[in-house]
Lab assay of single mutants.
Amino acid sequence: MIINNLKLIREKKKISQSELAALLEVSRQTINGIEKNKYNPSLQLALKIAYYLNTPLEDIFQWQ
Protein backbone atom coordinates (compact mmCIF):
# COMPACT_ATOMS: atom_id res chain seq x y z
CA MET A 1 0.00 0.00 0.00
CA ILE A 2 1.21 3.49 -0.79
CA ILE A 3 0.73 6.17 1.84
CA ASN A 4 0.94 9.73 0.65
CA ASN A 5 1.55 13.05 2.31
CA LEU A 6 0.28 15.03 -0.65
CA LYS A 7 -2.43 16.92 1.20
CA LEU A 8 -0.13 17.83 4.09
CA ILE A 9 2.64 19.07 1.79
CA ARG A 10 0.24 20.86 -0.57
CA GLU A 11 -1.44 22.71 2.32
CA LYS A 12 1.93 23.57 3.90
CA LYS A 13 2.90 25.23 0.61
CA LYS A 14 -0.49 27.00 0.51
CA ILE A 15 -1.50 25.51 -2.84
CA SER A 16 -5.13 24.61 -3.43
CA GLN A 17 -6.23 21.38 -5.09
CA SER A 18 -7.44 23.44 -8.04
CA GLU A 19 -4.12 25.25 -8.42
CA LEU A 20 -2.12 22.03 -8.30
CA ALA A 21 -4.50 20.35 -10.73
CA ALA A 22 -4.07 23.22 -13.19
CA LEU A 23 -0.27 23.00 -12.97
CA LEU A 24 -0.41 19.25 -13.56
CA GLU A 25 -3.10 19.46 -16.25
CA VAL A 26 -5.41 17.06 -14.40
CA SER A 27 -8.78 17.57 -12.74
CA ARG A 28 -9.22 18.69 -9.14
CA GLN A 29 -11.02 15.38 -8.60
CA THR A 30 -7.81 13.56 -9.58
CA ILE A 31 -5.87 15.40 -6.88
CA ASN A 32 -8.65 14.73 -4.38
CA GLY A 33 -8.67 11.02 -5.24
CA ILE A 34 -4.92 10.73 -4.79
CA GLU A 35 -5.03 12.56 -1.46
CA LYS A 36 -7.78 10.24 -0.20
CA ASN A 37 -5.86 7.15 -1.36
CA LYS A 38 -8.67 6.19 -3.73
CA TYR A 39 -6.02 5.47 -6.35
CA ASN A 40 -2.30 5.81 -6.92
CA PRO A 41 -0.90 8.22 -9.50
CA SER A 42 1.08 6.99 -12.47
CA LEU A 43 4.84 7.33 -12.17
CA GLN A 44 4.75 10.25 -14.60
CA LEU A 45 2.12 12.09 -12.55
CA ALA A 46 3.91 11.33 -9.27
CA LEU A 47 7.12 12.80 -10.68
CA LYS A 48 5.27 15.91 -11.88
CA ILE A 49 3.70 16.35 -8.44
CA ALA A 50 7.13 16.16 -6.79
CA TYR A 51 8.53 18.63 -9.33
CA TYR A 52 5.78 21.23 -8.90
CA LEU A 53 5.81 20.92 -5.11
CA ASN A 54 9.63 21.06 -5.14
CA THR A 55 9.65 18.08 -2.79
CA PRO A 56 11.44 14.73 -3.07
CA LEU A 57 9.14 12.02 -4.38
CA GLU A 58 9.88 9.79 -1.38
CA ASP A 59 8.65 12.53 0.98
CA ILE A 60 5.27 12.59 -0.78
CA PHE A 61 4.69 8.89 -1.47
CA GLN A 62 5.84 6.07 0.82
CA TRP A 63 5.45 2.29 0.75
CA GLN A 64 3.91 0.68 3.80
Score class of each variant (00 low, 15 high):
residue 13 K to S: 10
residue 47 L to G: 07
residue 24 L to G: 03
residue 6 L to W: 00
residue 21 A to D: 02
residue 24 L to K: 00
residue 41 P to W: 03
residue 2 I to N: 06
residue 1 M to A: 06
residue 60 I to H: 01
residue 55 T to K: 05
residue 25 E to S: 12
residue 10 R to S: 02
residue 9 I to M: 08
residue 44 Q to P: 12
residue 17 Q to F: 03
residue 44 Q to E: 14
residue 54 N to L: 06
residue 4 N to L: 03
residue 45 L to F: 10
residue 54 N to C: 09
residue 1 M to C: 07
residue 20 L to Q: 00
residue 50 A to W: 02
residue 38 K to P: 02
residue 29 Q to E: 15
residue 20 L to I: 05
residue 20 L to P: 00
residue 11 E to G: 06
residue 47 L to E: 10
residue 1 M to G: 05
residue 45 L to P: 00
residue 2 I to C: 08
residue 53 L to S: 01
residue 29 Q to K: 13
residue 47 L to M: 14
residue 18 S to R: 12
residue 19 E to G: 11
residue 5 N to E: 04
residue 10 R to H: 01
residue 47 L to V: 14
residue 37 N to M: 06
residue 45 L to V: 06
residue 21 A to F: 01
residue 56 P to S: 08
residue 4 N to E: 01
residue 50 A to H: 03
residue 54 N to G: 10
residue 58 E to T: 09
residue 41 P to S: 03
residue 25 E to H: 15
residue 21 A to M: 03
residue 31 I to T: 01
residue 20 L to S: 00
residue 37 N to C: 08
residue 8 L to P: 09
residue 34 I to F: 04
residue 56 P to C: 05
residue 34 I to K: 00
residue 61 F to Q: 01
residue 13 K to A: 13
residue 27 S to A: 07
residue 31 I to F: 03
residue 20 L to E: 00
residue 63 W to P: 04
residue 22 A to C: 08
residue 56 P to H: 07
residue 42 S to I: 04
residue 3 I to V: 14
residue 15 I to D: 00
residue 16 S to G: 08
residue 51 Y to S: 09
residue 28 R to K: 12
residue 54 N to S: 14
residue 25 E to C: 11
residue 9 I to D: 01
residue 46 A to W: 05
residue 31 I to V: 12
residue 46 A to Y: 03
residue 18 S to H: 12
residue 7 K to G: 07
residue 23 L to G: 11
residue 46 A to S: 06
residue 43 L to W: 13
residue 63 W to N: 04
residue 5 N to F: 06
residue 48 K to M: 09
residue 18 S to L: 12
residue 3 I to S: 09
residue 29 Q to N: 14
residue 21 A to V: 03
residue 40 N to E: 15
residue 50 A to V: 05
residue 59 D to W: 10
residue 29 Q to T: 14
residue 56 P to F: 04
residue 32 N to S: 13
residue 7 K to M: 08
residue 56 P to Y: 05
residue 30 T to P: 01
residue 26 V to F: 02
residue 26 V to K: 03
residue 1 M to Q: 05
residue 63 W to T: 04
residue 8 L to V: 14
residue 33 G to T: 08
residue 58 E to M: 08
residue 64 Q to L: 07
residue 50 A to P: 00
residue 39 Y to L: 13
residue 53 L to Q: 02
residue 4 N to M: 03
residue 25 E to T: 09
residue 42 S to N: 10
residue 9 I to R: 04
residue 60 I to F: 03
residue 2 I to H: 08
residue 58 E to A: 10
residue 6 L to Q: 03
residue 28 R to A: 14
residue 48 K to A: 10
residue 28 R to M: 15
residue 44 Q to C: 11
residue 50 A to Q: 04
residue 28 R to P: 14
residue 25 E to R: 15
residue 18 S to V: 13
residue 9 I to S: 04
residue 4 N to H: 03
residue 40 N to L: 13
residue 9 I to H: 07
residue 26 V to E: 05
residue 42 S to M: 05
residue 48 K to Q: 11
residue 30 T to D: 07
residue 43 L to T: 08
residue 21 A to C: 05
residue 33 G to S: 15
residue 55 T to M: 08
residue 42 S to R: 06
residue 30 T to G: 03
residue 64 Q to H: 11
residue 35 E to F: 02
residue 20 L to K: 00
residue 12 K to V: 08
residue 1 M to T: 07
residue 58 E to Q: 13
residue 30 T to W: 10
residue 45 L to E: 04
residue 44 Q to S: 11
residue 55 T to C: 08
residue 40 N to P: 13
residue 40 N to Y: 13
residue 49 I to M: 07
residue 63 W to S: 04
residue 9 I to N: 04
residue 9 I to F: 10
residue 31 I to W: 02
residue 59 D to G: 07
residue 5 N to Y: 06
residue 32 N to W: 10
residue 52 Y to H: 12
residue 26 V to T: 09
residue 6 L to S: 03
residue 50 A to E: 04
residue 23 L to A: 15
residue 25 E to D: 13
residue 48 K to G: 07
residue 48 K to T: 06
residue 5 N to P: 02
residue 59 D to S: 10
residue 4 N to F: 02
residue 25 E to K: 14
residue 37 N to T: 05
residue 14 K to T: 06
residue 10 R to K: 01
residue 16 S to E: 06
residue 25 E to L: 11
residue 41 P to F: 04
residue 61 F to E: 00
residue 13 K to N: 12
residue 34 I to W: 06
residue 63 W to F: 08
residue 43 L to M: 14
residue 59 D to E: 14
residue 35 E to P: 01
residue 17 Q to I: 13
residue 24 L to A: 09
residue 27 S to I: 03
residue 31 I to N: 00
residue 40 N to C: 10
residue 10 R to L: 05
residue 17 Q to K: 09
residue 14 K to V: 06
residue 15 I to F: 11
residue 33 G to H: 15
residue 46 A to D: 00
residue 53 L to K: 00
residue 8 L to M: 14
residue 63 W to R: 04
residue 30 T to K: 09
residue 37 N to Y: 07
residue 52 Y to G: 05
residue 62 Q to H: 08
residue 16 S to H: 05
residue 44 Q to M: 11
residue 55 T to R: 05
residue 30 T to S: 06
residue 5 N to C: 06
residue 26 V to A: 04
residue 61 F to H: 01
residue 35 E to K: 00
residue 9 I to V: 13
residue 64 Q to T: 13
residue 32 N to T: 12
residue 57 L to G: 02
residue 45 L to D: 03
residue 21 A to S: 08
residue 43 L to C: 09
residue 46 A to L: 05
residue 16 S to Q: 06
residue 35 E to G: 00
residue 27 S to F: 03
residue 49 I to S: 02
residue 42 S to V: 04
residue 52 Y to F: 14
residue 6 L to Y: 00
residue 7 K to H: 06
residue 45 L to H: 03
residue 54 N to Y: 06
residue 12 K to F: 11
residue 52 Y to E: 07
residue 22 A to M: 12
residue 21 A to P: 00
residue 32 N to Q: 09
residue 41 P to H: 02
residue 24 L to N: 03
residue 33 G to M: 15
residue 21 A to E: 03
residue 1 M to W: 06
residue 34 I to E: 00
residue 5 N to Q: 06
residue 8 L to Y: 11
